[in-house]
Simulated scan of single mutants.
Amino acid sequence: MMTATYVQGTDIATIRLYGSDTNLLSPIFSDEELLSFLTIEGDVRLAAAAALERMASDKTLLAKVRAVGDISLDGISLAKQLMANAANLRDIVEKNGAYAAIGFADIYMEDVI
């Protein structure tokens, strides 16, 4: 069985936070999927970016994001916003290095779903 947790201070929680997947009543990704993104990307912000990109590229996940977030954006606009959020995370890592500290001031909150 796939699990979905949100324990502060863990990589999974950080990925969920950056990736706008914090509603555990209806998670977009399982912990195992997020760990796979982390294994592939090697950084929690890059893993969150990969999760956002995956959401944006999958119609089923887009529908789930819209339902969970009660979002009124159409699918194309939502996908563009998710991709912009992912690009922002990737830019932060590129500019600051993979292991640089990041604060929420570095992410444009109006871009976070």
Rank of each mutant, 00 (worst) to 15 (best):
M1H: 14
M1S: 15
M1K: 15
M2E: 08
T3C: 02
T3F: 01
A4L: 00
A4E: 06
Y6F: 14
Y6N: 11
Y6E: 05
Q8F: 13
D11R: 07
D11V: 10
D11T: 04
A13E: 01
L17S: 05
L17C: 04
Y18F: 09
G19R: 03
D21I: 00
D21E: 01
T22Y: 05
N23T: 08
S26W: 05
P27R: 01
F29A: 01
E33P: 00
L34I: 02
L35P: 04
L35M: 13
L35R: 12
L35F: 13
F37S: 06
L38I: 04
T39Y: 12
T39A: 06
I40L: 08
D43C: 00
D43Y: 05
V44E: 14
V44A: 12
V44T: 13
L46C: 03
A47K: 02
A47M: 04
A47E: 00
A49K: 05
A51Q: 05
L52I: 07
E53T: 03
E53P: 07
R54K: 14
R54D: 06
M55I: 01
A56T: 09
S57E: 11
L61Y: 08
L62M: 03
A63K: 10
A63C: 03
V65L: 10
V65G: 02
V65M: 07
R66W: 08
V68N: 05
S72P: 08
L73F: 04
D74L: 14
Q81T: 06
L82C: 13
M83T: 14
M83C: 14
A84S: 11
A86K: 06
A87T: 13
L89P: 12
R90I: 14
D91C: 13
I92A: 12
I92T: 10
I92F: 12
V93G: 11
K95R: 13
G97K: 02
I102F: 10
I102S: 13
G103E: 04
G103L: 04
F104I: 08
F104V: 10
D106H: 14
I107Q: 10
Y108W: 02
M109F: 06
E110S: 09
V112Q: 02
V112W: 08
